[in-house]
Design a protein around this nucleic acid. Structure first.
Lengths: 242, 242
DNA sequence: TGGTATACGAAACGATCCGTAACGTATCTG
DNA sequence: CAGATACGTTACGGATCGTTTCGTATACCA
């Protein structure tokens, strides 16, 4: 069992909608049939209770694939990244990749999540302002000083037309992050810094959205001044309550 | 020049050399290179002062291509849209498309901008709150009730790794929109509704970013309540000034 | 030790799409 | 009329797709 980011949860089925060509895909149809009668192919083989029988999957290959995917995602973006290239750079065959991930998007998501999670702490500075500044600074650092910023856009775009990836993104990236931020808001309410009836979801959208907007569009730099201005406007906006 | 060469004699080794030089770069890199070294081939042929000589471009073909591109963008997204499909649906040959647009992204941008511009009015209701509500409502309507919302993500993603498209997006979509919103803020300053030292760019990022965030991630619906909450928090945040 | 099960790399497959070119036809200007 | 340009059709070589087959490698179990 590989620790964290390996495709443990996602069920590979019904990815026909993701296919690029509409009209007819005998290949996909065949694959759907084989997925129906057989075991899921792009999942971990070990179901709890039944110890794995044959040769175990190479964790070395897992790491090499994810590392290669992360590199290529940064260099070219998701759309221009080919599985063929990932395989070549990882020193692995294509089939080895397809055994683990059913789509390019899910592979990219894993490559992204592994690093991203460790870079988003839950600050507890004692004041809401301190917490927000720390959280937004950490997020900004991750997306501007590491390859992750450039991965973001491609994943978000791909998720627009890939329901499976969309759900995975929400479950493994967006909601964990929002849950962290909600805790910060709840603590501020307990401390009496802000009034309870504040709409936390809107606050999160403002907080996170402003930064993501500037990141994706790139019209202005993400400076420390920008971060503190964002926090200040939001704080003034909600400490007045309503 | 056209007639003097026997077809078979035209330097097959030159072609081979050209092919090996580009061995197997991803499509995007090849396209970028060809666009860089060559003259702009995919623009309107009529430069002012010289009336067009030959057969004019078919405006019918223009419309059909843009319409087909818009449809496919909505259905599959930019990454999964192929020029081949656009040509088939528009009843036009691939060459006809390549004569007009040098990249898939720029074609998509045109298909997007044509409709989008007409749907973003400059409201003047007399109050900043009224202006912001009207503007955000119009934007929200455009991206949720028309195909344009789903085009947005793909274009933004493609622009991350396509400098030409990135600049075009800023010049033709982002900056015109921000200029409109800045006017609304300036009028509010004149009326004394908000203090002058407010950072207008940050306000625009909050305003536009929150909505775009919720649109792209789709974690919560873009209701009228959401719109008014966003406007209220921002307004409270900046009317206190600082 | 052998049997079974699975993963592995390598190679090949039929497709689709790319971007370009050649060719003959259509429609403009002068 | 001639010249210029866009048009549609067709074809090309190459890249990548996702899958399949095959022989080999590596685990567990009896």
């Amino acid at each position: 069992m590989i620790s964290d980011g390996i495709p443990g949860t996602t069920a590979p089925d019904e990815k026909a909608a993701r296919q690029t060509s509409t009209t007819r895909q005998p290949a996909t149809a065949r694959r759907a049939a084989s997925a129906r009668d057989g075991a899921p192919r792009a999942d971990l083989p070990a179901q709890d209770g039944a110890p794995p029988r044959g040769r175990p999957r190479s964790e070395e290959a897992d790491r090499a694939i994810l590392r290669a995917a992360a590199e290529l995602l940064e260099e070219r973006g998701l759309a221009a990244m080919s599985i063929e290239e990932v395989a070549a750079r990882a020193g692995v065959s294509k089939a080895t990749i397809y055994r683990r991930w059913s789509s390019k998007g899910l592979l990219a998501l894993d490559a992204f999540v592994i690093e991203f999670r460790s870079l988003q702490p839950l600050p507890d500075t004692g004041t809401l302002r301190g917490d927000l500044l720390a959280a937004l600074s950490a997020w900004t650092w991750a997306v501007t000083r590491t390859p992750m910023g450039r991965m973001l856009a491609g994943l978000i775009a791909e998720a627009q037309h890939d329901a499976e990836l969309h759900m995975a993104w929400r479950d493994r990236v967006l909601e964990p992050l929002r849950t962290q931020y909600r805790v910060m808001l709840d603590r501020a309410i307990e401390r009496g810094e802000i009034a309870a009836p504040v709409d936390k979801e809107v606050v999160l959208d403002l907080f996170f959205g402003a930064a993501q907007h500037r990141l994706l569009l790139g019209h202005l730099p993400m400076t420390g001044e920008f971060i503190s201005e964002v926090v200040d406007v939001i704080l003034h906006g909600i400490t007045r309550a309503r």
